[in-house]
Design a protein around this nucleic acid. Sequence first.
RNA 1: GCCGCCGUAGCUCAGUGGUAGAGCGCAUCCUUGGUAAGGCUGAGGUCGGCAGUUCAAUCCUGCCCGGCGGCACCA
Length: 859
Amino acid sequence: MARYNPKETEPRWRKAWADAEAFKAVRDPGRPKYYVLEMFPYPSGRLHMGHVRNYSMGDVIARFKRARGFSVLHPMGWDAFGLPAENAAIERGVDPKAWTYDNIDRMRAELKELGLSIDWSREFATCDVAYYGKQQAWFLDLLERGLVYRKESVVNWDPVDQTVLANEQVVDGRGWRSGAVVEKRKLNQWAMRITGYADQLTDDLATLDRWPDKVRVMQENWIGRSKGLRFRFHFAGEGPAEGLEVYTTRPDTLFGASFVGIAADHPLAEAVAARDPRAAAFIEACRKGAATEAEIETAEKQGYDTGLKVKHPFDPSWDLPVWIANFILMDYGTGAIFACPAHDQRDLDFVHKYGLPVRPVVLPPGEDPATFAVGDEAWTGPGVIYNSRFLDGLDIEAAKAEAIRRIEAQGDGEGATVFRLRDWGVSRQRAWGCPIPVVHCGKDGVVPLPKSALPVAHPADIEFGKSGNALERHPTWKHTTCPVCGGPATRETDTLDTFVDSSWYFARFANPWADEPIGKEDADYWLPVDQYIGGIEHAVLHLLYARFVTKALADDGQLSVREPFAGLFTQGMVTHETYRRQNGEWVEPKDVELEVEGKTRRARLEGTGEPLIIGDVEKMSKSRRNTVAPEEIFDVYGVDAARLFVLSDSPAERDVQWTTGGVQGAWRFVNRVWDEFETSQPPIPGTEKTVTGDLAGNLRRQHHKLVKAVTEAIEGFRFNSAIAYLYSFLTVLKTHRPEGRVGELAFAYQDALRDFARLIAPFTPHLAEECWARIGGEGMVVAAPWPVFDPALTEDAVKVLPVQVNGKRRGEITAPAGAEQAAVEAILRADPEIGAKLEGLTIRKIIVVKDRIVNIVAA
RNA sequence: GCCGCCGUAGCUCAGUGGUAGAGCGCAUCCUUGGUAAGGCUGAGGUCGGCAGUUCAAUCCUGCCCGGCGGCACCA
């Protein structure tokens, strides 16, 4: 018998699938559609194990759904714009475009080696002019609708690299590349009005019932909707005539007010600073102190009394002081608050420092109003309002409503909803991105280009390799004419955030050849994505942006769906043990020799034998050097074994630990499966009734149970369980091998093999084809329907019932399936072993759980 | 601090209100023309702790302990 040879079989089947165009997505009105999509990769040039796992999961679903009769769309593309290409250009003097397309070629070849059931005819990269030109088209549509606008905003500016940096590119206040101290700069930036959809984005989360709760909670927190009251304080004496507007979620506690606070960069604070040097100094100190996020969070509460006073909205004779405070954020609400220290911890900390009054107005349940006092902890729980005149006796919600009603009646404000979410700044001062299709004209200002001028492509001779924006530096590209007046104008040299590129690609896949950005008819057929698969790190970035863009394009009539992803699955990462030398240097797994002695494991450096420290299990990463290259694994064990292992060892949503032993176990399974098929002999027709026996019936029952279990496990994303069932069924096959080619068992065995080949196909597709061909299956497995099970055959005719006496297992009996109480009791009485156990005991009660267990309660 | 997830064999994980399981690892033996291999058998578990509900709890409920993740001066 020959060993299974993946190097020969795997490429052969991939070619057969490609020749048959087995994965071409076709609109078929006769079948239900299913769109399965994995988050498309950044073309770094190299496939890693995380890709193997992610795309294998999508492939299992795609192959399974195809076999179940769905018309499946399973496409692939490239998230190809972005900084790594420009950095490679700067570091190595290569052209970002050439670098990116080379990487795509390499990664496409590697992905194809994985044997994924992808319709490659739909492939595109976001850096294709054919793609980003369409993006420019809908950008103009949203601009026209007012969903894109320019705004002055504060950004992180790297003075050495001459570019804006994203927040995550600022490390300890310095640019991650240049090391220069990052400056805050106000720049005119393009932004998308995602806040206009904040309510819908929150409300519609409730419709996403096939999303993980975790992601929905994260989005809800990120959008941060809060309902409250926006109102105006009137100044007592000196102060601006328009008053001071504040926002609060606790209007019920207005009678507990102690002071009014404003942010250091509030306009009023600046006005005060203009005539009060000490106020100016305080504001300056606040700005300096707030260098990093961590410092802001831990900073001590500080304030400065402006000397201004405002009147309490419900009592004009009650004055409240106005303080500038370092813990108030200018960009949330109105940048000003009223402070109720008894029921807000921040306010309490503040007044303790500055000796301002604390007036409790919410009485916690069970407390006495005469004695209740607030110490170091503010009371933020439920209670009854007191010390609050007309609000006394109300609960918190009723008091909020009443306070809002009164303020509205006075004309001082109204109930308001405020969001934490900010508009999405999409300008990037980088050349390797989608150019923004507008020009700046000295006469007409900012002018959108007409669609006939699209696409606005990059110049061919773009000069990278220096810091800053290469589009800005290009000698001729930006000089053009104004579409309105025909006079000289300059092109916008900012490009779009790459998250814009990825916020609609799933819709483009429906028809990547369409003249319009989205081929409506095809999009209406394929969307929404039925199953989206990707990492949880995009919970509030890509997944939120894509939802927003979908809604915006739907409102523009370009899409019919209002949510892009009906089902979301967030997969775990691939991890590996880490190894370090005594000097702390990380060592790659392939240079490590492991030895096991009893229960302890030791690691040595291959070659020198130097003892190594075995470290934590962590996500595979270059920095820890704990990566295993997929191609090396494919080379030794084949693609199927690698696919099988990354799906088998952990639940799909959790991390999987890569181990050599694990992949070897998968490889052994592949070989044992092949052995089973290769040594099998087809039964001789017409001989089924010649020999019968228990084995055949038993095999059929186990076989049908397997079909049921694997089907349900795949439906529920429990790939590891599905594989575990397949593993154990192999043992069943081995113990039910027929002796010859005649008799009932030979037929039952053949039937089991036929279904087994189809059940393993989503996981090990090449092996499945090879096995299928070996037993003379018709056509290819990719075109074969999914096995069905006979529910009657998934039940055993005879059940083994454990017998408990007072809850402890004391023996077992066999009973026909479905045996009722009386029948089981009869069997019990006839059983001598059970009788012995009951010697000297009085039976009080016999509990029979049908087909499961018997419990005798005795004393 | 708030929210969520997790805790079952040495490791990675299934599982169920009713007999505790798989793969890897470990041990014994067999095979030595599948051989940088294959096979048989086996050991190994107070199912994180305590209490409650129940005839019966690893599973349900409560509290506690430990690990991981997200959010966090958002008024």
